[in-house]
């Protein structure tokens, strides 16, 4: 497998990059949905995200990346048990994947050779404590979407089939990308994404030329290109790590929280999840920028990506949701 295109080398697309960084700082944000034109580097950015994520500590041999021995599911049997660091898992959920592959199923080989009932973990087990990436998420088959929704809700994968009764933790961050022209996303699934960004092709020719130049340089000599960008990627990752460290220390005062609430009320976004996400995203941004307190400017910056996909859709309003969020921001003079 070829190395991924460096994150820092992605030209423009600031919103998309910021959303990725924020979700890397605070995984509780609940993932990113990237929707937009074809050929804008959506998948490239998601694949580059892996490089930004700090490694996790997990017990060697644990199929669900557990950190503590008591979290290792009993069906995993005896495992080595020494702690090791491994990269944060970023698991690809391909379209056309079978349910077996997602949830895990009976281990056929062991059943055949030893006549044992054993569980073979699936993608959900692999993605525990990590990220689950779905490209063309709006084309995902319905029964897989249902399954993901269940698991995302409970944080636990429950398998009851073929005489197996198995459960294991499956807490993951969803990252999806797609093109709205292929169809809409189901609202329940939409709601599972913390942030959503719309990407467009750059309209500036100079920027487009730069995109192609970098891409060409990468394809001609990937190693040299990666070397060139390694430092910048590392700088972003260090900033992400630093931001994680100070995340809890960012002071959040009443006016900032009030602004979040007012904004959500003015937009009529459903439920409280919007407020929570807005607040978390703004806090992550403040931490990333090294601010000691959450300010209105942070909220303003992340409001479109935290709220745009939560608005009750008004099909008669031609303006995109992002525009509506901005309009309300302006009206409030925030």
């Amino acid at each position: 497998m070829k190395a991924a295109f460096p994150f820092a080398a992605i030209v423009g697309q600031d919103d998309m990059k910021l959303a990725m960084i924020l979700t890397a700082i605070d995984p509780k944000l609940g993932g990113v949905l990237v929707f937009g034109d074809r050929g804008t580097g959506k998948s490239t950015a998601v694949r580059a995200l892996a490089a930004l994520l700090p490694p996790i500590t997990a017990l060697r041999g644990c199929p669900v990346n557990s950190e503590r021995a008591e979290d290792v599911p009993d069906w995993a049997g005896q495992i080595d048990g020494t702690a090791e660091t491994r990269p944060t898992p970023v698991v690809d959920l391909p379209l056309g994947v079978t349910e077996d592959r997602v949830t895990g199923a009976l281990d056929i080989e062991r059943a055949l050779t030893r006549g044992e009932k054993a569980f073979q973990p699936g993608l959900l087990a692999q993605a525990n404590r990590g990220y689950l990436y779905i490209d063309e998420v709006n084309l995902l088959e319905d029964h897989i979407v249902d399954l993901l929704l269940d698991v995302a809700q409970s944080g636990e994968n429950l398998v009851e089939r073929e005489g197996l009764s198995v459960r294991h933790p499956a807490r993951f961050v969803l990252v999806g990308s797609g093109n709205p022209e292929e169809g809409e996303l189901r609202p329940q699934l939409l709601d599972r994404f913390g942030l959503s960004v719309e990407v467009r092709s750059p309209t500036d020719v100079a920027q487009r030329i730069e995109v192609i130049r970098r891409r060409d340089a990468f394809e001609t000599d990937a190693e040299a290109f990666l070397r060139k960008w390694r430092k910048k990627d590392a700088a972003i990752r260090d900033a992400v790590l630093a931001a994680r460290g100070v995340l809890a220390k960012v002071a959040v005062r009443a006016p900032a929280l009030k602004l979040c609430a007012e904004l959500c009320m003015a937009l009529g976004s459903d439920g409280l999840r919007g407020e929570l996400t807005l607040y978390r995203a703004a806090r992550a941004l403040a931490a990333y920028e090294g601010a000691t307190a959450l300010k209105a400017q942070h909220i303003r910056r992340v409001a479109p990506m935290a709220l745009a996909h939560r608005l009750r859709r008004d099909p008669l309003d031609d303006a995109g949701s992002t525009v509506r969020v901005q309009r309300v921001l302006e009206e409030m003079g925030a």
């Binding site: 050929g39 020719v205 487009r208 030329i209 995109v211």
Partner: peptide, 16 residues
């Protein structure tokens, strides 16, 4: 890239 832009081609895959 410029020719693609003048023909109104949005996707950046096209010039590649």
């Amino acid at each position: 890239v410029t020719v693609a832009a003048r023909l109104g081609i949005d996707s950046l895959r096209a010039p590649l």
